[in-house]
Simulated assay, not measured.
Amino acid sequence: MSIEPQVAALAHRGFSLDGHENTLRAFRAAADLGFVWVETDVNTTSDGVVLAFHDPTLDRVTNTSGDISDVPWSDLDDVRIGGTEPLSTLGELLRALPEQHFNIDVKDESSVEALPQVIADEGAVDRVRVTSFSENRRRRALASIERLTGKRPLTSAGTVGAAGLTILSKIARVTDRTSPKIATVIWSAMTKLWASKVAEFDTVQLPVTYDLSLPGGFKLPVSVVNQKFVEVAHRLGIAVHVWTINDAPEMRRLLDLGVDGLVTDRGDILAQVLADRGQWPPRSASSRV
C-alpha cells in the first residue's frame, strides 16, 4: 500500500472559532485536532518579554489598547483576548505544549534580540521555524539563534526571497522550453548576488495571489502559487506553504497542485480534507515540511 506524502498542516494562531487567536486555549485546541505545527507571531514588551501576539498594538483583540512595546509584562496581567483569555508568552507556550512545533513570525525589532534567547533557554531550536516579512529581521534573528544554540532552525523566506522565487517561476515559463537547467543557473546567480543580505531558506510561505499596487490606487492581482511555481520551487529543494486557506475546495486544489503545506484558521476543515486523502494525522514534524 502506498503512503501519501506528508503535508505540513499549520494551525494559524491556533484554532478558535471564537477568534481567541494566539492563546493557550487555541493552541491546545489545535493540538487536540492532531496538529503538529502551529503558526504564531511574536511582539515583545518594553521589558523584553516575548509574547505570542500578532499586532503591534493591543487594540484589535483585547479589552484594552496601546502599543505592546511601550508596556512591561507586569502591566498586562488583566488583559484578555476576546474578553476571556490571558496573553501568553512564547516561553509559556513552549513549556505548556512540549510536543508542538511553532512556526514563528518575527513582527518587531525588539523580538530580533529577545526571541533567540527564549528559543535557547527553552531548548526549542529543533521545533521552531523562524520567519519574518522583514528579511533584515529574519537574517539577524537566525544568526543570533545559531550563535546561542549552535544550530540553525528551519526558516521560510522573507519578502525578498519569496519575490525572487516568484520572478524566477515567471522566467522559467520561457526558459524551460529550452532547458530546465537554465532556471537553476539563474537561481544560483541570484542567491550569490544577495548572499550577504538574504539568509538561506528551506521554505516559502506566501498567498495564492498578491495584489500589486499601481498608480491611482489600482490593484493588479498577480498569480503567485501555480503549477510552475511549485515545480520550480521543488526543483530547487524548497518547500511551498500557502496561507491562509480556509475552505475545503481550495485546500484540495492546492494539495493537488503539489504544495507542501497549508496554513489555515479552520483546522477542523483541513484535518478532514487531509483525512479524506489518507494524510491525517501527521506522521511527524518532518524537516521537509
Score class of each variant (00 low, 15 high):
S2V: 06
S2K: 13
Q6P: 01
A8L: 09
A8M: 10
A11P: 01
G19F: 05
N22A: 00
T23D: 12
L24R: 12
R25Q: 15
R28K: 14
A30L: 02
G34C: 05
V36D: 02
T40N: 07
V42H: 03
V49L: 00
A52Q: 02
D55V: 00
P56D: 13
T57F: 11
D59F: 15
D59K: 15
R60A: 15
V61G: 01
V61C: 11
N63F: 04
N63D: 14
N63H: 05
T64G: 01
I68L: 14
I68T: 04
S69Q: 15
S69W: 15
D70T: 15
D70H: 11
D77F: 10
V79S: 09
G82T: 07
G83P: 08
T84P: 02
T84Q: 12
P86V: 12
S88R: 05
G91I: 05
E92I: 01
L94C: 10
P98D: 12
E99H: 12
Q100Y: 02
N103P: 08
D105L: 07
D105P: 06
S111G: 09
A114P: 03
A114F: 03
A120F: 05
A120E: 07
A120R: 06
D121V: 00
E122K: 09
D126N: 12
R129S: 13
V130D: 03
V130Q: 04
T131V: 12
R140T: 15
A141Y: 04
A141S: 15
L142D: 02
L142P: 01
L142E: 02
I145L: 08
E146V: 06
L148M: 13
G150T: 09
G150P: 08
K151G: 00
K151W: 00
T155C: 13
S156I: 11
T159E: 12
T166F: 10
K170T: 08
R173N: 07
T175W: 00
R177G: 01
K181E: 03
W187I: 04
A189T: 14
A189V: 14
M190C: 13
M190W: 14
L193D: 13
L193Y: 13
L193I: 07
L193R: 14
A195G: 08
S196W: 08
S196P: 04
A199I: 01
V204C: 08
V204Q: 02
V204S: 03
L206N: 02
Y210Q: 10
L212W: 08
L214I: 03
L214A: 05
L220W: 14
P221A: 00
P221H: 00
Q227S: 14
Q227W: 07
K228P: 03
E231Q: 12
E231R: 11
H234T: 09
I238H: 06
D247A: 09
P249T: 14
R252N: 13
L255D: 04
G261Q: 04
V263Y: 03
V263M: 15
D265A: 05
Q272K: 14
V273P: 02
A275E: 12
R277I: 02
G278L: 00
Q279G: 01
W280L: 04
A285R: 00
A285F: 00
R288L: 11
V289A: 09
